[in-house]
């Protein structure tokens, strides 16, 4: 594929990660352990929606086919979505949501940092804006991981289970497929082997503070980047896209 095609695919994937995270986090409205955390989760969801809009709009521009952010978001089916499997996992309990946030945001922050110097200037600008939000998300979620890991026996057990459960989805974050490789060679995108080292160091530090055990690297599930998803994405998209599919062409 050409370097331009790789860029479009890469930017779209970033939008996909963001919008799927937004869908999942907004499920906490009305269900949070405390009102303040519902505010925090919906705040994060709002940040992610903003990021998704920027990524999708940019992808639409690059594409040159006149597709709007909404067309890209609402009119693609699962096999064209390139989000990682980690973000489409169900929320589970609050501990599992926090674990997923920590594992993803640690990666996402490093990815955004690496993109801040990309010659794809629009991408670099979006990354520069998103990183402020990502930093706050990780700060908030990281503190929660510590509270839950070092809280009660029950909270420790729950959040350890969550980390253990989600670990199989962390490998995919660092698997470089052709799109990642072209991003790295042509667009100064991240070197995923370097990112992996940083990620492990940060996760080690956080897990230690939270008195949690780091799981052994076992079999890693993957395929999301290539459009091969778990059964969850279908439901997420069906719900998200239902209005646009039921009333094609309408303005809202």
């Amino acid at each position: 594929m050409s370097k331009d095609q790789a860029l479009i695919a890469y930017v779209t994937r970033m939008g996909d990660n963001a919008i799927v995270m937004a869908q999942r986090l907004s499920e906490w409205v009305g269900h949070g352990p405390e009102l303040e955390e519902e505010m925090a989760m919906s705040n994060f969801a709002l940040d992610y929606v903003g990021q998704a809009r920027m990524f999708f709009s940019y992808a639409g521009e690059l594409d040159g086919k006149g597709r709007s952010e909404d067309a890209i978001c609402f009119l693609r089916d699962g096999w064209d979505y390139g989000n990682v499997l980690l973000v489409e996992q169900p929320n589970g309990d609050f501990g599992e949501t926090i674990a997923r946030l920590v594992l993803f945001e640690t990666f996402y922050g490093l990815q955004l940092e690496a993109l801040a110097t990309s010659p794809a200037t629009k991408l670099a600008e979006i990354a520069a804006r998103a990183i402020k939000e990502s930093t706050y998300h990780l700060h908030h979620a990281g503190n929660w991981l510590i509270r839950l890991g070092d809280g009660t026996d029950e909270s420790h057990r729950r959040v350890q289970n969550a980390i253990d459960r989600l670990w199989t989805y962390t490998g995919e974050l660092f698997e470089a497929d052709p799109v990642d490789q072209i991003m790295q060679s042509e667009w100064q995108g991240p070197d995923l082997t370097v990112l992996r080292e940083h990620w492990h160091r940060q996760i080690d530090e956080l897990l230690a503070k939270a008195t949690l055990q780091k799981p052994e690297d076992g079999w890693m599930d993957s395929g999301g980047k290539g459009g091969h998803h778990s059964e969850h994405l279908g439901y997420i998209l069906a719900e998200m896209q239902s209005m646009q599919r039921t009333y094609p062409g309408a303005n809202w």
Partner: peptide, 15 residues
């Protein structure tokens, strides 16, 4: 309301 200082700052910021 917050359980600790870090949370208090975050909640104040969010609210």
């Amino acid at each position: 309301h917050a359980a600790d200082e870090a949370m208090a700052l975050d909640h104040a910021r969010d609210l």
